[in-house]
Simulated assay, not measured.
Amino acid sequence: MPVISRILSIALRVAEIAFAAVVAGLVGSYLHDYRSDSGLPLARFIYVEIIAGISILLGLLWLLPFASGFFHWPVDLLLSFAWFAAFGLLVNYVNRTTCGGHTFDWGHLTRGGFCQRWRSTEAFSFLSAIIWLASALLGLWFIRRERNKTAPVDDRA
């Protein structure tokens, strides 16, 4: 069973890196093209870019095969919450634009254009939050399972 959990952990880490890279690329492209004197509306995008960068860095570091790979679950959970916050910020932004619509209306993302780019960013930030949450749950499950294996057995009964 440890082999399956380790393979699943590696697959989740690769997905975390890929999803964060997509979000970082899309938001980074917007930040690069942005021209304005005030930086205040950019705060949400800078936050998303920072979370994506941290996710890429930690995903790459934790992809290395160490024995303590499952002990990072609290940080995975924290990053999941950070991604959910980023998703909320992106939803708030997109709903204020001409795109509007339903939050989970992610059909036709490959057609290109402004709205499809932001819908893609929403989708990948949500998927990243789910994958980080799954990674945290896998780590918690693994730690609890190992703790139960090493728990002393009471033979007095």
Rank of each mutant, 00 (worst) to 15 (best):
W106P: 00
R117G: 00
L40F: 07
D76M: 01
P74A: 08
A24Q: 11
M1D: 09
V75M: 14
E16L: 06
A11N: 01
V23H: 02
L140D: 02
A18N: 07
G112Q: 05
A24P: 02
L109H: 10
L57F: 15
R156M: 05
S128Y: 02
A134F: 10
F114E: 11
W106A: 04
I54T: 13
F87G: 04
S125V: 02
G88I: 07
L60P: 00
F84A: 14
C99H: 11
V27H: 03
L90V: 04
A67W: 10
Y47G: 04
L79E: 05
S125M: 10
R13E: 05
V48F: 05
K149N: 04
P2H: 11
F142G: 00
I7G: 01
L42Y: 04
H102L: 15
A157N: 07
I143S: 11
G88K: 10
L60E: 07
S29I: 03
V153R: 11
S80P: 05
L109Y: 12
V3Y: 08
L26H: 01
L137Y: 04
H72W: 12
A18W: 08
S80N: 06
R145Q: 13
D37K: 11
Y34L: 08
I131P: 00
I54M: 14
L57G: 12
A85I: 15
R119C: 00
F87T: 15
G69E: 14
H108D: 15
I131K: 00
A123I: 01
G59C: 10
A86M: 09
A52P: 07
L8T: 10
S36C: 05
S68M: 07
I17W: 01
Y93M: 03
G59Q: 13
R35N: 09
W118G: 03
H108C: 06
S120L: 15
G25N: 10
S29Q: 12
G69K: 04
G107M: 08
H102P: 01
W132S: 06
A20I: 00
L140W: 13
E122P: 00
G112L: 08
A52S: 15
T97P: 06
R117F: 00
D37N: 09
L31H: 07
D33Y: 06
I50P: 04
L61M: 14
W118K: 03
F87H: 06
R13A: 12
V14D: 05
D105E: 14
A11Q: 03
L42C: 05
S9A: 14
F71M: 06
T103Y: 06
T150A: 14
I130D: 02
D105Y: 09
S9I: 01
W141I: 06
L26A: 13
S120I: 05
L79H: 07
